[in-house]
């Protein structure tokens, strides 16, 4: 019997080497359903390497990534067959890229973008797919009349929200986000964060969010991991890490933000 408190994702001693260079080293953590984990650190600290290795996009040199699947129990994602892994990645997982162009199909309409995952898992009723896409457009605060428009006609913020809708339509339980607010101006960032926080709460999503923006981390994440030179140097509750940083690097990071 699976318990609510069993970890959804378990990462054990994950190491990714690029030849002699360290991508990330000996990272271990657990993530429970509905929990939001922020990974912060400066550019080149191994955040994105870590995210790629956890999300089955790049096999690590060493270490284990285990996921609590819906039907098969706990599985090592790199021991699954490629077919199973890809199915997992497009149903129970979601990826929000920093640049929405990486996560969207720019040459088909917003509706088709949202519907793609539904069609990939066998939905073959046009009316239902369209209805579902329309609902999701509403949830991410895009007007229904834009359903048949191409994403290239959308603003950056709308594209990012569309990417989120497209990912969440199959009700995933785990979402990976790589700098989701990266290229957006401050007011749009705030609105997107607000939306994300609402969705994460309403849908009980577990999220791993990579960001260099401590404000984003503070707003969204429950727990925080601070990385430097491929290693996790500090790990704890978000408020605890940000209000009482222990490691000199974290102290530097926190103090570098303008306080009011």
């Amino acid at each position: 019997m699976r318990q609510m408190n069993d970890p959804l994702l378990r990462v054990d001693n994950l190491t990714m080497m690029y030849g002699d260079r360290v991508g990330c080293k000996n990272v271990s953590f657990e993530l429970r359903p509905g929990e939001v984990l922020g990974i912060v650190g400066e550019s080149g600290s191994g955040k994105s390497t870590l995210l790629r290795s956890i999300s089955a996009q790049q096999e690590p040199t060493k270490g284990i990534v285990e996921y609590q699947t819906r039907i098969d129990g706990t599985r090592d994602v790199y021991q699954m067959s490629e077919a199973q892994r890809r199915l997992l990645m497009r149903t129970d997982w979601a990826f929000v890229h920093q640049n929405p162009r990486d996560g969207l199909r720019m040459n088909v309409s917003a509706g088709a973008n949202i519907g793609e995952r539904l069609m990939a898992i066998g939905d073959r009723h046009y009316g239902n797919i369209r209805q579902n896409a329309d609902n999701w457009l509403g949830k991410v605060e895009i007007a229904s009349e834009r359903l048949d428009d191409l994403p290239s006609t959308f603003s950056g913020g709308m594209q990012q929200r569309l990417q989120i809708a497209r990912n969440l339509v199959t009700s995933p339980r785990l979402v990976f986000m790589d700098e989701p607010t990266g290229g957006l101006d401050v007011s749009v960032q705030a609105r997107l964060l607000d939306l994300l926080r609402g969705l994460v709460h309403d849908l009980n999503l577990a999220v791993i969010i990579v960001t260099h923006d401590l404000a984003v981390a503070r707003l969204l994440s429950h727990r925080l991991m601070v990385m430097q030179q491929g290693k996790v140097i500090e790990h704890g509750l978000t408020d605890q890490v940000l209000d009482d940083p222990q490691h000199p690097y974290t102290q530097l990071l926190v103090s570098s933000i303008l306080q009011n």
Partner: peptide, 30 residues
């Protein structure tokens, strides 16, 4: 819909054909 040959071969191998319906969906939408 997927210009990468490596990717389309993989999609054939794994029977991932949802994308084909995206094209038909787009037809009906337009």
């Amino acid at each position: 819909l997927e210009p990468r040959e490596t990717e389309t071969r993989k999609m054939h191998a794994l029977e991932e054909y949802g994308l084909m319906h995206v094209k038909l969906y787009e037809d009906i939408a337009r």
